[in-house]
Design a protein around this nucleic acid. Structure first.
Length: 568
RNA sequence: CGGGGUGUAGCGCAGCCAGGUUAGCGCGCGUGCUUUGGGAGCACGAGGCCGGCGGUUCGAAUCCGCCCACCCCGACCA
């Protein structure tokens, strides 16, 4: 592949649209161009890198027993209406209408279509389990696309769907997908942290996300510094802290706190701190008031609340709803003597004493409140976000916050789609039963951006060899020199014969441009043919380590192959 | 959708506030000569519906209105 003939429009300056390294470098290295907001075209080198990634995904999926299929990009509305997601998806799903007035969507995912397709084959238990995947262009009309390929509206994704006779069978496939995803990440030189996640719109019971820790990541995650535990910030579980309230008992007394509604105001007014104040957050759940009590320094996680309540149908009590629930005194709600309201306590409230809380009377709070003595925390759960210093519920290690890029997500769906879509199989007794399903997504174009995000320096991209568009760039500093051209052609031919396609910079430009472009494009190895050839020498440079090796054209193929072999 | 910002040559930008010749600069691009191990020099040259529509004015890149596109922050989503 010759640079004089392939389109690799490198840019010297940072394009105005790019904010983060991966976006900037993919543009500058001539691998990608933007077409519209969140919609990108890949040029030849970008395409080659994406193909490398998708081939790795293919290999791992096939090795795990999955089979590739090709599903349409455009889906009719019917199956989506049947599953309820035509409604549930909202404007994030791109909808369009054909000339007959039929409605379609540009598929953001494919549970419905594949489930119907599999169910139409009338499978028996003998046909299961089944694991089918595709690698497709998807579309999600994100409210705000950003960061180039990292959060595009149109993107490439591998999505797999598995079908089973039982939960146990699903567990096996889920585990094999977990392994396959770990292998994909490893081969792409990405360190992943697997975290427990909220299941969101896809639904289902269990799901885990494969996260790459990065400052530009859009998800906040919590992970343990000691063990493998990790979770999305809204779903993490931590041990109850020990810093809430006071060690000693105190006398219960009521104090005037005129207009002191927020935790901070009360703490300052009563000369204490938020580690002694019991915070109350009021919700309306299915038309009923719910008082949630958490330590003053914590926030309620509505995702955890959803799990505890078993429904997502709740919202914070609005101003205009207060009169509907006279039992709660907004701003001054406390657990002591509170009646006619459903109450939920954070785990940390159990056994705490010396607390300040609302007195259920306007402008009044209670001091010296003690759980067990003044009120009983009967219904207790972990419903608060983690704070600095919290400990891992599994091992007691210190929990840390970080940001992560989600490159993969695996779900146990159970019967969520097979039931509404009537997707069943015939069991041993000849009875129809709904199939148990799993779904597994991995963002291939996002991996492309993530690799660049993690593997670059000031000069450009440093492709790990497994996903590099090509393994080697050959710089011919003076292509008009017959000797240099001859050595280059021989090397190129020799490498090609041993199955290595390379990039040759045979442009008639100054050496500096070639060096800089080569570092920018970032192929794992560079061979430089210049005036050292007069002494019979050429240079071999490894992009990742920066290491330079002098070698000779004779036998260079072996040296190159060895060098690339050991390259990162 | 709310807030902020930007649209001028392929890319990066100046000019706009204070309207007035042929709209500039750097990079890139073309031709020629010289150069050639980390973004070379000289000469000549091509390239613009100044985002679009409408208005004000003798005159609009510049002022006003509407629209569109793109970027950033937020809400949202995964």
């Amino acid at each position: 592949m010759r640079l004089s003939r392939v389109t690799v429009p490198t840019l010297k300056e940072k394009p105005a649209e790019a904010e983060i390294p991966s976006h900037e470098l993919l543009l500058r290295a001539g691998m990608m161009r933007s077409v519209a907001a969140g919609i990108y075209a890949l040029l030849p080198l970008g395409t080659l890198a994406l193909e490398k990634i998708e081939d790795i995904v293919r290999e791992e999926m096939n090795a795990a027993g999955a089979m590739e299929v090709v599903l349409p990009g455009l889906h009719p509305s019917d199956p989506w209406i049947q599953s309820g997601r035509w409604q549930a998806y909202g404007p994030e799903m791109m909808r369009l209408v054909d000339r007959q007035g039929r409605e379609f969507c540009f598929a953001p995912t494919a549970e419905e279509v594949i489930t119907l397709m599999v169910s139409r084959t009338a499978p028996s238990y003998r046909d299961l389990p089944l694991n089918l995947y595709q690698i497709q262009t998807k579309f999600r009309d994100e409210i705000r696309p950003r960061f180039g390929l990292l959060r595009a509206r149109e993107f490439r994704m591998k999505d797999a769907y598995s079908f089973h006779t039982s939960e146990e069978e699903l567990d096996d496939t889920y585990r094999s997908m977990y392994e396959a995803y770990s292998a994909v990440a490893r081969r792409c030189s990405l360190d992943v942290r697997v975290i427990d996640a909220a299941t969101g719109l896809i639904g289902g019971d269990v799901s885990q996300e494969f996260m790459v820790i990065s400052e530009v990541g859009e998800d906040e995650i919590i992970y343990c510094t000691e063990c493998e535990y990790g979770a999305s910030a809204e779903m993490e579980v931590h041990r109850p802290g020990v810093g809430f309230g006071s060690p000693e008992s105190g006398k219960l007394e009521e104090v005037k706190t005129p207009g002191m509604v927020s935790v901070e105001d009360v703490a300052v007014y009563l000369d204490t701190d938020n580690a002694h104040v019991l915070k109350c957050v009021l919700y309306v759940v299915g038309g009923e008031a719910l008082a949630v009590f958490v330590p003053g320094y914590r926030e309620v996680s509505e995702a955890k609340l959803e799990c505890v309540l078993g429904t997502g149908d709740f919202h914070p009590l609005r101003e205009d709803e207060r009169e509907l629930y006279p039992a709660v005194t907004a701003g001054f709600t406390g657990p002591v003597g509170l009646e006619g309201v459903r109450i939920l306590f954070d785990q940390e409230v159990k056994g705490s004493r010396g607390l300040v809380c609302g007195a259920n009377r306007v402008d009044h709070h209670l001091k010296g409140v003690e759980e067990g003595r003044d009120f009983k925390a009967d219904s207790v759960a972990d419903i608060a976000y983690t704070v600095e210093g919290d400990l891992c519920a599994r091992c007691g290690g210190v929990l840390r916050k970080a940001r992560g890029i989600e490159i993969g997500h695996i779900f146990k769906l159970g019967l969520k789609y097979s039931e509404p879509l009537g997707a069943s199989f015939t069991d041993q007794d000849g009875n129809g039963k709904p199939m148990v399903m799993g779904t597994y997504g991995i963002g291939t174009s996002r991996i492309l951006a993530t690799v660049v995000e993690l593997h670059h320096d000031d000069a450009g991209i440093k492709w790990p060899k497994a996903v590099a568009p090509l393994p080697l760039e050959l710089l011919v500093l003076s292509p008009e020199s017959a000797e240099q051209a001859k050595v280059a052609a021989d090397l190129e031919q020799g490498l090609k014969a041993s199955g290595m396609e390379i990039l040759v910079d045979d442009r008639d430009v100054s050496p500096g441009i070639k060096f800089n472009d080569a570092d920018l494009i970032g192929l794992p190895a560079q061979v430089i043919i210049g005036n050292k050839l007069a002494e019979g020498k050429i240079d071999l440079k490894l992009r990742y380590s920066g290491e330079r090796i002098e070698t000779f054209p004779e036998g260079a193929n072996q040296a190159i192959e060895r060098a690339i072999d050991v390259a990162t």
